[in-house]
């Protein structure tokens, strides 16, 4: 079935993505093409370029443009205890297994500005697991990683975070973990003393540790099927036998090449366990 013949714009778009990869090593070639195109169209408009070729010309010769363009190319929507029922299921179904290990490693892949990392750190503290755990929080967006390391969020997001935390089965008050100052909530730095933040891409980097839990939520939907398979393959190789994988609310291993290597622990909450 050949409904589509390539238009000039499609050729230019492919070349732009290729150019970003060749020059800056950010590899968007295997992202979901339809939403990538939308975001690049928005970027093109923002940078007042008539064509993708013009945008390519600018990004090739103006290195300051890249961080801004990355802001368009990666989606940074997040919240603490996002989908509270996921975190509740984590407490109820995963934590009991994790308790049986003397030391733990957790990988938060695609951590954005850190909302998910702090949620997990709080949950692990509440469950008495924090002291035995190392967290790895990784992302390709270095601006987001810097925010994650700072742990400062607008105060007007805290009501939502607090409600989510309660619904997740929170055993303490979220206000125990931050101080409010000048319209911002500054999270306690002790929450991240066991965390390594690092620039890591699921598109081309390798496994770096053996971990017991991978949380990679709302990242895979931006990848095409091949890149999803690569990423899930990394998680599989990184996880210990019977280790756990948590995905986003609309992500699953349903269409994954690795589906058979995982058991569904909680279908609704997208929690998986690597088979032995």
């Amino acid at each position: 079935m050949n409904i589509h013949t390539p238009q000039t714009e499609d050729i230019e778009l492919d070349l732009l993505v290729e150019a970003i990869y060749r020059k800056y090593h950010y590899d968007f070639r295997d992202y979901s093409a339809a939403s990538l195109k939308r975001r690049l169209l928005q970027a093109r408009e923002h940078f007042h370029c008539q064509t993708f070729s013009a945008l390519q010309e600018r990004v090739m010769h103006d290195t300051d443009l890249l961080p801004k363009l990355l802001g368009y190319l990666t989606i940074q929507v997040s919240e603490m205890f996002r989908d509270p029922t996921f975190f509740r299921a984590l407490r109820e179904q995963v934590v009991p297994h994790l308790r049986t290990y003397p030391s733990l490693k957790v990988w938060v892949a695609g951590c954005s500005a850190g909302e998910e990392l702090y949620s997990l750190a709080i949950l692990f503290r509440e469950e008495g697991l924090e002291e035995r755990t190392m967290f790895y929080a990784t992302d390709i967006n270095t601006t987001a990683l810097r925010k994650a390391e700072a742990g400062v969020y607008d105060l007007d997001r805290i009501a939502l975070f607090t409600a989510n935390h309660q619904k997740s089965g929170g055993k303490s008050s979220l206000s125990d973990y931050y101080t409010a100052a000048y319209g911002a909530a500054v999270f306690d730095k002790s929450l991240r003393k066991r965390t390594v933040f690092s620039d890591h891409t699921l598109a081309s980097d390798a496994v770096f540790a053996e971990v017991h839990l991978v949380c990679c939520r709302n990242v895979l939907i931006y990848f095409n099927r091949e890149l999803q398979d690569r990423a899930v393959g990394l998680f599989k190789d990184s996880l210990v036998r019977r280790g756990f994988l948590g995905l986003g609310a609309k992500e699953s291993l349903h269409f994954s090449a690795h589906a058979a290597d995982f058991a569904e622990l909680n279908r609704e909450e997208r929690l998986y366990q690597k088979r032995a």
Binding site: A33, S35, I221
Partner: peptide, 12 residues
């Protein structure tokens, strides 16, 4: 979203 390989993508 509809992809050119005739599969769906979701996005936020």
């Amino acid at each position: 979203l509809v992809e050119r390989d005739f599969s769906f993508s979701l996005s936020q």
